[in-house]
Amino acid sequence: MSSTLSLAVRDSSTMLRRNLLHARRYPSLTLNLLLTPVVMLLLFVYVFGDVMSAGMGGGADRSAYIAYVVPGILMMTVGGTAVGTAVSVANDMTEGIIARFRTMAIHRPSILVGHVAGSVLQCLMSVLLVGAVAVAIGFRSTGATPLEWLAAFGLTALIALALTWIAVGMGLVSPNAEAASNNALPLVVLPLISSAFVPIDSMPGWFRPIAEYQPFTPAIETLRGLLLGTEIGHNGWLAVAWCTGLTVLGYVWSGRTFTKDPK
């Protein structure tokens, strides 16, 4: 009898292959989610760039604003991919094949792990592509060491993991794709109201707590610190804590929801 762990790994990798096959056969959703952050990046740099940078004070110009906005755009990429995960999980749950999986002697969580692993991989590829576009239009790091680049990538992966597990839970509780898309909306709205596009101290006082006490702000500040050499302070630990908390929450929530009897 094979151990539970090897069963888990084997079934999860089978499920991952299934999800990657879906993504390869039907790339339109992936492309759609990729296009949004690229358009946002170009829009904020070339259309709103002058006004936005003027708002930052200190004589910042457009190239300085590129540097400021890129970490936020990368987080939007992650959030957008997570919305796609919620939609595809909700879609998948309506398929008869899921009922079949439930009646098979497989490692049950592997069905969800396959979704998460597939989405995180897609997410990181999207982040690399959006990052490449950012570099192409002039984004440069400020003396970041390879280790800092690696840390930035690692943090992005952690955030992707956390948001994807939350998105899987959102997909599981949604009866259909439309509902999943609505339920997952906070994942793309939260970056908009974080420090992604303008500094928090430029926001009205009543709004600052909303921007301050949410996962995207410490994550974005940490990325800025790693890539642009700004002050990280407590944001690093805060970002990791958010990621860990959300991952555990999403994992437990998804697992419980999936174990319940299907309707």
């Binding site: 039907y26 398929e95 008869g96």
Partner: peptide, 19 residues
């Protein structure tokens, strides 16, 4: 153990339509 011994074909086809 039951799952290891049975096969199920549901009323609504339990195939993955995308592949």
């Amino acid at each position: 153990r039951i799952r290891a011994a049975i096969g199920v074909t549901g009323q609504f086809s339990a195939v993955d339509g995308l592949i």
